[in-house]
């Protein structure tokens, strides 16, 4: 009876029955938006600066950007991260449809994509450093490594998160099913956010 009163009185409340952890996740992601916003502003306002006394002073933005070629490597990375978003959402679909096999397979695939992406980024960093652009010697390098490095760190955190999810899913399969998928959904939200940031970085840093 009292429960009925409660339900009735809460009918129009925008907070009614929301999952606590999902609410926290979205709030946190809102904060992350500002974080990457500040990073991108830093990059955009600083990347064109040519240091008066830098060893690579003659390498301006266009010069540096030529290092990326036609963004072949980056395009592959973008493709991989995009694929990982698909596999992540398929993993969630798997757990929601009580299909443990699909869930674990796609989760594993997402982790694999993440690892490949990180490998690609390490290779890219290596390549650029090899061409003489470091975090120290020119402003473009500083901001470029900073922004992409922070994104890479987020990917790495995501990989650790998803690995622990996969381990847990193998050890305690009973914890993941159509009625209990919030842990997967939260990991997924974070993962898609990281992908979303890449959509931004890819366009703003590499293409524009």
């Amino acid at each position: 009876m009292a429960q009925a009163v409660v339900r009735d009185i809460d009918k129009n409340d925008p907070g009614r029955g929301l999952d606590l952890r999902k609410l926290g996740m979205w709030t946190f992601l809102g904060s992350e938006v500002f974080f990457f916003g500040a990073l991108v502003v830093t990059h955009l306002s600083m990347r064109g600066v040519v240091a008066p006394s830098s060893s690579k002073a003659n390498l301006d933005v266009t010069g540096v950007r030529n290092l990326f070629g036609d963004n072949v490597l980056t395009s592959i990375l973008a493709f991989i991260l995009l694929t990982s978003s698909l596999t992540m959402v398929l993993a969630l679909d798997g757990v929601k449809t009580n299909n443990q096999k699909r869930f674990r397979f796609w989760l594993g695939a997402t982790i694999a994509c993440g690892v490949i992406f990180l490998g690609g980024q390490v290779y890219e960093f290596y390549h650029i450093v090899h061409e003489g652009v470091t975090i120290k010697n020119m402003m473009f390098g500083s901001t470029f490594f900073f922004v992409t490095g922070f994104h890479g760190t987020h990917v790495a955190v995501g990989v650790v998160w998803l690995v622990s999810l996969l381990v847990s899913a193998i050890r305690h399969p009973e914890r993941y099913n159509a009625g209990n998928y919030m842990a997967v959904e939260l990991g997924g939200l974070y993962w898609h956010f990281v992908d979303l940031v890449w959509v931004l970085i890819f366009t703003v840093i590499y293409l524009i």
Partner: peptide
């Protein structure tokens, strides 16, 4: 790095 160091172009 030189983000805020004017001597190296920082701001």
């Amino acid at each position: 790095t030189n983000f805020f160091l004017p001597a190296a172009g920082g701001d």
